[in-house]
Design a protein around this nucleic acid. Structure first.
Lengths: 356, 356
DNA sequence: TTGTATGCGTTATCAG
DNA sequence: CTGATAACGCATACAA
């Protein structure tokens, strides 16, 4: 093995090459092979799977790589292997803070394991979602679907091509991360009952949302258990504005406590109710869902059932990468706990329903 | 050159192949070339640049492609061309709602032009940021840096490799999108002066933030113009909690109005001040910056200088893609307007500084 | 207009 | 342990 570790020729022909690649594009394994005096395939081995090459050539190659500021070309690597070290995350609505936690959790977890996150949103549209999913699927190793709006079959179809993890929904045969709503809902309903409420309204989310059904089921069951009457109210959209619009129906329902599909609805509802002169929580109690950013900015601060979104993002990314790294045994549905966050928007009813 | 690129040979006899590719991996241009009876290069042309092929073969190829459910392999395409139809966006802090708008704007704009967005955060660290940038740079066509924390030279270094657009900062030689703070600040300060305030405090952001300096300059200039005294106060971090921590200093400063680097600081500050029994805005006026999600959840709702974040994201992505598509003439710094959003947290001073 | 030949940077399969 | 060589799927000068 030639000792001349310097760029300077071993003699062959006096070909004074610049040591550091002067050109524009970056160095390849060929360049470093030449500099280190080995075969390109050896360079590839040394750089991708350490240990399969002798210690001295290893160092030789690493030094040369460092000197040339070598960086792998991800495309060239992806072509034969198909692997990209990239994860895709599709969320239903980027403006919805519910997803901020998920994005954050997924991004940081991915980055920690040297993966990169690709982000897309479906704008609450099943079609857009599917299109985005298909487009990204070609480029990534795996896919995370947060609160997907497309139907189960489409999800399974995607899962057949690349590993998929679903958040906030359960699909047969596809691993998922879902908050267990019952604990938090149970706490909330018991609290409401203890404060003298007899009837609660549930303001629902988008019909395509799997989670809105789970939450309604949970509310209904908990209310039965506590002998409370309950009623479901549709909302035009799961936003602050949607919450405002549904205020009238809430009042008309005669409920003294309202639980909403998410915090946005709760906040909008509270704003509208207060604007109409209704005291919260003296006249009506409001309980949101998720504990989003800003839920404690309101006056009174919003009582809400916290869904650990960041944990969902983290767990989903972890799950996905485990599958990618060959873990076959993956629990079908990972549960994360919800809990009641008691703040000012719920409490004892001051104005009795039936005056004594 | 051997013809048999497929797994099973064509013995030229009636070989009933499934029309749709039964195998696992997806179809290539070779498959569709065979099916359409043309050369792979023709397929490539037909699919990438329509018009450079006769109408009938075009259709022939498109039909075959459809039948085989062909989808280009992005890596194979990227290898010769270097183009990926992918943009990277790096934000300082994913949990900071300031960036939500930017993310949303960039994502939707990119998607609209059939680009995909890759997202990373720097966690307010210049090192992390640079690392993430370098890692992503290899994979994308261009890079958007939102409120970058790294220094100018590093940014220029990145810009030498791939097109870069910067948001919320100006770097020589690098195109950028920056809100023009002066209009909004001017409106705010004049309003404060008109309401009887004589001294305003500016709660600063992270020292590495280019924007915090711009905002302080703007505040100082506007205050001089309106003959107001002004003072700058450092904050430990640009968050709600940071705002709480700086409350003591604000009170000590003797200012009756405070403007903050961002809304988070303003909200935290207001919470702490109110907890200490100070009426807002009767005793002290608070003006935030950005008009983030939730700024109107507080009581009183936050007066703030709106920075059109979504527009910044949109403009940055548009700018970047224009450069990518060969636009040389690109304005060095695109300005977007800021405006005062007057809400309840600022107003007339009820308790005079110097009792009459 | 269409076919031919070659390159893009890595990994992987063989030999040696 | 290392070297040669063939894919990987697509784009593109060049030739016909």
């Amino acid at each position: 093995m030639s000792e001349s570790r310097t760029q300077d020729l071993s003699d062959s022909s006096a070909e004074a090459r610049k040591p550091v690649r002067s050109g524009k594009s970056s160095a390849t394994i060929y360049d470093i092979a030449k500099l280190a005096g080995v075969n390109p395939s050896t360079v590839s081995r040394a750089l991708s799977k350490p240990g399969r090459v002798s210690a001295k050539t290893q160092k030789l190659i690493e030094d040369a790589a460092a000197q040339l500021e070598y960086r792998v070309n991800p495309f060239a690597r992806a072509l034969p292997t198909g692997r990209t070290n990239t994860l895709a995350l599709i969320v239903a609505d980027i403006t919805n803070p519910t997803f901020f936690g998920i994005i954050r959790g997924a991004e940081s977890t991915a980055t920690a394991r040297d993966y990169t996150l690709m982000l897309a949103e479906s704008a609450e549209s099943a079609d857009t979602e599917l299109t985005a999913a298909r487009r990204m699927l070609a480029t990534v190793d795996g896919l995370i679907l947060a609160s997907p709006r497309m139907d189960d079959n489409h999800i399974r179809e995607l899962a057949r091509e690349k590993p998929v993890v679903v958040i906030n929904r359960q699909v047969d045969g596809v691993p998922s991360v879902v908050p267990d709503v019952n604990k938090g809902i149970g706490e909330a309903v018991r609290n409401l009952a203890a404060n003298g409420h007899r009837k609660v309204a549930y303001v629902a989310g988008p019909p395509q949302s799997w989670m809105t059904a789970r939450r309604w089921e949970g509310v209904k069951a908990a209310c039965e258990w506590s002998h409370l009457e309950c009623v479901q109210l549709p909302s035009p959209k799961p936003t602050v504005d949607g919450g405002r619009q549904v205020a009238r129906d809430v009042v008309a329902s005669g409920a003294t406590a309202v639980m909403t599909y998410n915090d946005l609805l709760a906040i909008g509802l509270m704003q509208e109710l207060q604007a109409a002169g209704m005291q919260v929580p003296d006249r009506i109690s409001i309980v949101g869902f998720d504990d989003i950013f800003g839920a404690d900015f309101t006056t009174p601060a919003l009582t809400t059932i916290r869904s650990p979104m960041t944990a969902c993002g983290t767990e989903a990314a972890t799950l996905l990468m485990e599958v990618l790294h060959g873990a076959e045994e993956v629990s079908p549905a990972l549960q994360v706990e919800t809990e009641l966050v008691l703040r000012g928007s719920s409490g004892r009813l001051l104005v009795a329903d039936h005056p004594a």
